[in-house]
Amino acid sequence: MKWFRILGLGLVVAVTGCASNSSKDDLQWLNPPMAVPLQANVQYEVQVARLTQLLQRSDLENDVRAKMHFERGSYYNSLGLRDLAQLDFNQSLQLNPAQSVVFNQVGQYFTQIGDFDSAYEAFDSSLELDAANSYALRNRSIALYYGDRFPLAIEGMTSYYNEAPSDPYRALWLYIISREVGPMDAGIALEKRYQSANNEWGWILVALMLDKVTEEQAFKAVLASSRDNNVLAERLTEVYFYLAKRHQIDGDYPAAVSLYKLAIAQNVYDYAEHKYAFLELTKIFEIARAQQVEKEKQKLAEEAKLQSDSAE
């Protein structure tokens, strides 16, 4: 089944339906399932305004002001305003540098913009302040993965996975990272972990990655279990991201690009899958650009050879 066709890597997207050959009952998904994209949370906007007003006071202790900057930055993050969030996180750390949680947020920001050295430094600071900060351990491992430092990424993600082996998301990320150095072993390991799956929602994402369920079945499960639009948006973000990753692994970059864009389109700013979809798109564009440059070099070399042969 093909969900998407794209005219080259120029990324002119034509979303197609998905149809089965078997019967009329199987004809489904003429368009990709979508939630109403999440809108700015009014309560978060009110909290931003309130904190902005409070921060204008001159009688605040540094610890209190640092906490307020962190809180406002967190709200900015949830509203998709990551640069404003980063400004607040930096302000918070200047006032109180002993904040593991804030360094973790800063590290995620640097990962998103591709400044991996700064990301590693931020995550290291987070873990030095609180060695039990699992989120910092996970996010550092993901940063190492995107920075192509695979052995260190695997080591960190393995530690993170071992803290909660029944967590499907930990199993997924360990697989995604581990397959960079051993695709077959990573697949076998994920298969074994899937055998002990529980009823947690995320295991259907593992099943999708392993091709244990079809795309239709995965989306049926999403729609059947998501009566609230927020939940629907969150689960579609996850499904589109990991389905895109599977297509990317298979070398189907056009389909992966379409699916990453759909993951982003749900506007679930807090989710790692939303944040890292941008990085994945960047990687694909870089591959496409490198391939184009290589083709142009080959074309020029062939033309030069033809001219040389004709001159002889």
Rank of each mutant, 00 (worst) to 15 (best):
P33K: 06
M34I: 04
V36S: 01
P37E: 11
L38S: 03
L38T: 02
L38C: 06
A40S: 04
A40P: 04
A40E: 04
A40V: 00
N41R: 09
V42Q: 04
Q43T: 10
V46Y: 04
V46G: 09
V48Q: 06
A49Y: 07
R50W: 02
T52H: 10
Q53W: 14
Q53E: 13
Q53D: 02
L55P: 07
S58C: 07
S58R: 15
D59K: 01
E61D: 10
D63M: 11
D63Y: 04
D63K: 09
D63E: 04
R65W: 12
A66C: 03
M68C: 09
F70K: 12
E71N: 15
R72F: 08
R72L: 10
G73P: 11
G73L: 04
G73R: 15
Y75H: 15
Y75P: 00
Y76T: 04
N77L: 15
S78K: 02
L81A: 13
L81E: 15
D83N: 00
L84W: 07
D88N: 12
N90F: 08
L95Q: 04
N96H: 13
A98W: 14
Q99S: 04
S100R: 12
S100C: 06
V101T: 12
V102H: 09
F103L: 01
Q105V: 09
Q108C: 09
Q108G: 13
Q108N: 14
F110Q: 02
T111M: 06
I113P: 05
G114P: 14
F116V: 09
S118W: 08
A119G: 02
Y120A: 05
E121L: 07
E121F: 01
A122N: 08
A122V: 03
F123I: 10
S125H: 06
S126K: 11
L127S: 00
L129N: 13
L129I: 10
D130P: 02
A131L: 10
A132G: 00
S134E: 15
S134L: 07
S134T: 12
A136R: 05
A136F: 00
A136V: 01
L137W: 01
L137Y: 11
L137H: 04
N139D: 10
R140C: 10
R140I: 00
Y145H: 07
Y145S: 13
D148V: 11
